[in-house]
Amino acid sequence: MLEHGGNLRDAQQRFGGDDWIDLSTGLNPIGYPAPALAPDAWQRLPEPDPALVQAACDYYGAPHLLPVAGTQAAIQALPRLRAPSRIAVAAPGYAEHSHHWAQHGHSMRQVPYATLGAAVGDSDVLVVCNPNNPTGDTVAPAQLIAWCDALAARGGWLVVDEAFGDTAPASSVAAHVGRPGLIVLRSVGKFFGLAGLRLGFAGAEPRLLAALADVLGPWTVSGPAQLVALAALRDRPWQQATQARLARDGMRMRALLAAHGIHASGTPLFHWWASVHPEEFHEHMARRAIWVRLFREAGRGIRIGLPAHAWQWNRIEQALRDWDQG
C-alpha cells in the first residue's frame, strides 16, 4: 500500500516522544462533535438512508449522490468500470488515483497540473483533484466543464476529486454531476474532521452511480457513520463558524511560514511547498514531535496541516525558529 499521512504510530516508533502534534493529514483538527447514537445503531444492518443522501445533495449542491465508504472506495472501484483506456492523472496529486488507474489493463500517465488541458485530446479519462492535494492549485469550473464535454463526446470521463473542496465552494462542479462523463468525489472526512467515519459521496450520471453501487456491494457505509454524517451535513451554524475559523487559521499558518522564509501554497486546511531536500525539514520537525507530510516522489516537498490548540501553535513556531538557526 502507498504511504499516507496520519501514520502517527510509525512516527512514534521511529522517533519516540510524547505529545505529538499531527499535521500530516490536512484534516480539520477540530472535528464535528458527533451526537449520541440511537441504541439500535450498532445492531441494525446499515440500510441506505434517503435522508442522508438528501442532506448531502443539499450541502454539496448536487442533484444525486451515492454514499461510499470514503472517497477511497470510489477511487479503487472506478477503474473497474471501464474497458482498458488511456488515463491522464494530474501530478503531483493524491497518489491513490494513479496507483489504481495503472491497474485493470489501463494505460496511465501522469501529467503536470499546469498542462492538464493538453492531455484532454489524447486521453479517455482525465483525473484532477480540485483543489489539488497537495499543492492547493485549482482549475476554474468553466474549464473543467469544457474538458468534460470534450471527453464525453467520445465516451470519456472527467474525474474531479473535490475531497478538499468544502473551503472552496466556488470551484466545485458538483452541481453538474448529471452531465455525461462527469464524476465528482466529495469527502466528509476533511472539512468535518471525521476521517474515522470512512464516508464520502460520488456524483455522476444515475446509470454510472448504479454500476458503481453494484461493484461496491451492499452495506458499504456503517449505520453510525450515516447518523453522524446526517447531523454534520445539516448543521449550518457549525459549518459557517468552521469556515470562518479555518479561513482565519489558514491565513495565520501562511503568515507564520512566510515569516520564516517559507512561501507556501495550499488551502485553509493545509499548506505545501516544494523543497530540494524535504527530508531534512521533515526530520527536524519529527525530532520535536511534530509530524508533517513528506513527499519524496513527484513534486518533492512538504505539506503541513493546522493545529488545534494554542500550545501547538507555540511549539510549531519554536520549531520554525530552530530551523532558521540551523
Rank of each mutant, 00 (worst) to 15 (best):
A170E: 13
A286M: 11
W311P: 00
V111E: 03
A56T: 02
F192D: 00
R82Q: 12
L197R: 00
A51Q: 15
W101D: 01
D149F: 12
V128D: 07
R207Q: 12
A229Q: 02
L197A: 04
Q240S: 11
L78R: 01
V173R: 00
A241Q: 15
Q239M: 09
V111A: 09
D249G: 09
T220E: 11
L216G: 06
V221F: 02
A244L: 14
S222R: 12
T167Q: 04
W219D: 14
A168M: 11
I21F: 09
W147C: 09
A152N: 10
L182G: 01
A102I: 01
T115P: 03
Q54Y: 05
A264Q: 05
R198S: 13
V128L: 13
D235A: 06
R86C: 14
H4P: 03
A298Q: 13
P237C: 15
V68Q: 00
Y32Q: 01
G156W: 02
C148P: 02
D161C: 05
S24R: 02
G217Y: 11
F15W: 15
A34P: 00
W291Q: 10
D324C: 12
R154W: 13
H284W: 07
L2R: 13
E297G: 15
A95H: 08
C148Y: 04
G305F: 05
A170R: 12
R254G: 09
Y32K: 00
I290Q: 00
A152Y: 07
A69T: 08
A62D: 02
L246W: 11
R245W: 14
H100C: 05
L208I: 12
G155Y: 08
A11S: 10
V128S: 09
P206F: 10
L320R: 00
G203V: 00
L158W: 03
T167W: 04
D58Y: 08
H64K: 08
P131Q: 13
P268L: 11
G250C: 11
Q226Y: 04
